[in-house]
Design a binder for these strands. Structure first.
Lengths: 215, 215
DNA sequence: CGCCTAAAGTTATATATTTCACATATTTTA
DNA sequence: TAAAATATGTGAAATATATAACTTTAGGCG
């Protein structure tokens, strides 16, 4: 059994391949080549093969990959064979949208607890959930076996919420606040920063990836 | 005038530095070192200096950077000296949340038109906006000088909306649909894929960035 | 006024990632 | 059943990115 480091970009693409395969499967496609996957998700065929090679051999030379099999392999690698209940902090517009976000469920993710400290939001119903006070998060995390937290609170409250999540042993946090959260080494943070994405666009609208220094 | 290619990761970090500087400035901090910026956003000091070096010399050796100056420089580089009106397609929960998203405005971004084809959504008011039929997007883009589009429609409708945006000369699209959009070379797409972010987390919850092949 | 310290800017090194090219395996076909 | 076509898996080369080490410059202080 050998352990090897997998580039994060590879994991990201694996997730993309996985969903693409799911779509192929839904459409009744049974076999696919690295070239077709590449075409479908916008990378090179060699990249697809190299990425998959980190995890094993899943194809048949001269033939390609079995869609259903490869889909299952990718989901297993991504740890999606179990459902993932999640705790959401922040019941504003963004939080509400996340609660109803269909793409989560399709992949086994489900927000099972929504928490906020704003008295005007506590008690609000969002589909089949009710916004609870933040202080109730610990017991819900325990009861539901939650391992992933989502932070959708205002920037000024984000660190405090992160601390609370860390104290309650969450090791994975999806953070929408535009701030670098301070957490222990063993806690993973993924930042979703929409302004950053837009600013990469505005930069490129001007320079298209190059920069012309004055003079 | 020499032109040099800037890594996308550098542009991403520049945006992060920029907002961090904005926060320092708001807090009355006037001077900062690469080490403090690094600490504040979670990268190495060398990385900060290297990133800035792509664009010029902004600091004083032995002293550091003037916060206000560097903030302005970064914003100028990122093309944020002008406001950026944006067109949003999709007035569901996510679209609604984006309309009210405060972090956009702070950086000069503003959704000035919301469009949808769902008759139950057209006419709906979201703050000071009214949801319009998609077919009206072209004229609004023209009138308001919009250059950035946001796609927050269901996956099945995303490509069609992208085509519409491309036809109307938008060159930058922020896409929330979990699908690879097909657009001409000169159109930039940034995908925000929340499931992908979560799946990177679930992968790491199991393997922490390494993979142990069976046997 | 010169020495010392701090920190930016820069060059060189190391690491990581992607691309390329090819060897290998499978199926099809003549 | 041999040859051709196809497409995977992989090692080597090329490229890109990040880290580290070093050089330069500014300011403080004795």
């Amino acid at each position: 059994m050998k352990t090897l480091r997998v580039p994060e970009a590879t994991v990201t693409r694996l997730s993309i391949y996985s969903r693409f395969l799911e779509r192929l499967d839904r459409n009744g496609v049974t076999s696919v080549s690295s070239g077709e996957i590449a075409e479908g998700v916008g990378v090179s065929p060699a990249q697809v093969r190299k990425d998959l090679a980190y995890f094993g051999e899943f194809g048949t030379r001269g033939v390609g990959y079995n869609v259903k099999d490869l889909m299952h392999y990718t989901m297993k690698i991504l740890n999606l064979t179990q459902p993932w209940p999640m705790a959401l902090a922040g019941a504003g517009n963004l939080g509400t949208a996340l609660c109803t976000y269909r793409n989560f469920r399709e992949r086994g993710f489900a927000i099972v607890g929504v928490f906020d400290n704003d008295l005007t939001k506590i008690g609000k119903r969002i589909e089949d959930l009710t916004v609870q006070p933040l202080e109730e998060m610990p017991q819900v995390i325990k009861q539901r076996g939650i391992r992933i937290g989502i932070i959708a609170v205002p920037t000024r409250a984000a660190q405090e919420v992160a601390d609370l999540m860390v104290r309650n042993h969450l090791k994975a946090i999806l953070n929408f606040a535009p701030i670098a959260l301070n957490v222990p080494e063993d806690v993973m943070i993924r930042n979703v920063d929409l302004s950053v994405s837009l600013e990469v666009l505005t930069f490129n609208l001007k320079y298209r990836g190059t920069y012309e220094s004055e003079e």
